[in-house]
Design a binder for these strands. Structure first.
Lengths: 114, 114
DNA sequence: GCATCGGTGCTAAATTTTTAGCAAGGTGCT
DNA sequence: AGCACCTTGCTAAAAATTTAGCACCGATGC
């Protein structure tokens, strides 16, 4: 559910329920949203009578945590291994300009890194 | 729990319990391991009378799924954005040789990509 | 105005998960 | 052998989650 919120930015209970791949009942989704809000993971705004939920931790910050976690879980903390499978996964979807930009990113990081 | 298994390769119930950051009871961990095994996510080997659990999906494959999911959830599918925060997270831990190797990886992928 | 359509808040029951604790059985030590 | 010690298998109760369904409220349309 949090993944859906991070993908969409914000969503109603119905949207979240629809977006799940193996969804429990709509009731369960509503109940869980209440729990997540209670625990401070999400909050809601009332937008013309509907609740629109959004994550409390901003996407940028959450993404950093997620990347760090992934690095730790699957790649022994190695950025190289991570980039290798990232390139593998992105596979043929990358254009020449994409490769340019990736190189530029690394070059930039190398210079700024010290 | 699966994260721990992927980090360690394999682990006993006690090790998994110890490795969790906000662990439920040992009983709950054992019960959940049974459920995960029932559902086919993990299996166990008996190593001198102890159950050693391991993931069914190999680390390599799981890591690819995880990267794809992360890309989708936080980076709109953009490898560049992902690499940018990856570099940001790895930050100053990267040596000059690391940068070399990263460049080489990208160069290699560019050539092989077509 | 009035009926209808959604969505929320709530309740209560069914189901699942979590918990503690016990017996059984193997290991290692004395 | 006898005795801790540890792990599994099991049970049963407690706690949490999941579920369906209802009343209420505002908006929409006739």
């Amino acid at each position: 559910m949090l993944d859906i919120l991070y993908r969409c930015g914000q969503a109603t209970a119905a949207e979240i329920h629809a977006g799940m791949q193996d969804p429990p009942s709509y009731s369960a989704v509503r109940a869980l949203l209440r729990v997540l809000e209670e625990k401070g993971h999400i909050r809601h705004r009332e937008k013309n009578l509907r609740y629109v939920y959004l994550p409390v931790v901003p996407r940028e910050k959450a993404s950093r945590s997620a990347v760090a976690h992934l690095l730790d879980t699957f790649f022994d903390g190695s950025a190289e291994q991570a980039v290798a499978t990232l390139l593998d996964v992105s596979g043929s979807k990358l254009s020449d300009e994409d490769f340019e930009r990736l190189s530029a990113l690394i070059e930039k990081a190398r210079k700024e890194g010290r």
